[in-house]
Design a protein around this nucleic acid. Structure first.
Length: 274
DNA sequence: AACTCTTACAACCGCAATGTC
DNA sequence: TGACATTGCGGTTGTAAGAGT
């Protein structure tokens, strides 16, 4: 017997998501909220397993995601949090609004690891690296004192910045207020300008992850315009909470078919924030 | 222009944790 | 309380795009 696999893999699609699939997933979640992931693909008309849908949504389609490279400040935060938490990427991500664990993990592996090694710091232990040729346990040529002071300086600077929003829930700092966050790397779109042309210019047969990216470039919702109630608060976490808790209501708001170009078959033909 | 190598990141896999009955 | 379902997490892989030759 044993437990059922998370999804029946026979006949299910794998690999990069197409614009058409993204459109179906977004359309369904906005209309119905994040219901049971296992059932979602069938209900949304997707040939994907629920896990794949959840991953696509949480890592790529969620409207509250920030895009673009991590800022210096975010990077330093990741380093410090990693020193404290290790590879607990989701925990680390929870301290960086709009960033996903996957994104941080990737950034760590591709950028930060190298950067630390270059600085003579072991990315695993966050301690000075021992040189290969000095296996007799002599210290790295980089003086530990200066290294530690560098780390300490960075930590202190970061603490002074992070404490504001990590420790004080009443703080009115938002992602946009935080100098360190690279919102300037994210194309900010006025809410009234957001229009999602879901109908792809290219035939679906040519759709690929590139088409999907194009679609998402136009989908960009980085500077989310929250319903009037939410806008009274600048607390990003609160907004995220509202997003999660009241997703259905919010989805209803968005899915008013007079505002969304919803075709008869339920798919979105356009998406306009009014 | 064609090929190879490197980089970046989206997506997958398997296991763990948690929830439900 | 145990069995199973569902969700979350971290490690790993696949691949497109860019750089170098």
């Amino acid at each position: 017997m044993g437990r059922q696999p998370c999804c029946d893999k026979v006949g299910l699609k794998k690999g990069p998501w197409t614009a058409e699939e993204d459109q179906k997933l977004i359309s369904f979640i906005l209309a119905n909220g994040q219901c049971c992931w296992r059932a979602l693909p069938k209900l949304a008309g997707l040939l994907r397993c629920g896990k794949s849908c959840r991953l696509r949504w949480t890592n790529y389609l969620r409207p509250d995601l920030k895009r673009g490279l991590l800022s210096e400040y975010e990077e330093q935060m990741v380093i410090d949090l990693h020193a404290q938490l290790g590879n607990r990427w989701s925990k680390i991500a929870s301290h960086l609004p709009g960033r996903t664990d996957n994104e941080i993990k990737n950034h760590w592996n591709t950028h930060i690891k190298k950067k630390l090694k270059k600085m003579g710091i072991d990315p695993l232990t966050h301690k000075p690296l021992q040189q290969q040729s000095q296996q007799d346990k002599t210290p790295n040529e980089l003086p530990e004192a200066s290294l530690q002071s560098t780390i300490t300086e960075a930590k202190e600077e970061e603490k002074s910045m992070t404490s504001a929003f990590l420790d004080d829930p009443t703080t009115t700092m938002t992602v946009d207020d935080t100098d360190g966050f690279c919102t300037d790397e994210v194309p900010l779109i006025e809410p009234h300008e957001i229009l999602v042309p879901v109908a792809c210019a290219e035939p679906s047969s040519t759709s690929s992850s590139c088409d999907s990216s194009k679609f998402l470039e136009e989908l960009q919702l980085p500077d989310f315009d929250w319903p009037a109630d939410c806008n009274t608060s600048n607390d990003n976490d609160e907004k995220l909470g509202l997003w999660n808790d009241d997703f259905n209501d919010w989805g209803d708001l968005l899915c008013d078919r007079t505002k969304l170009g919803v075709d008869d078959d339920g798919s979105l033909s356009s998406w306009t924030f009014i």
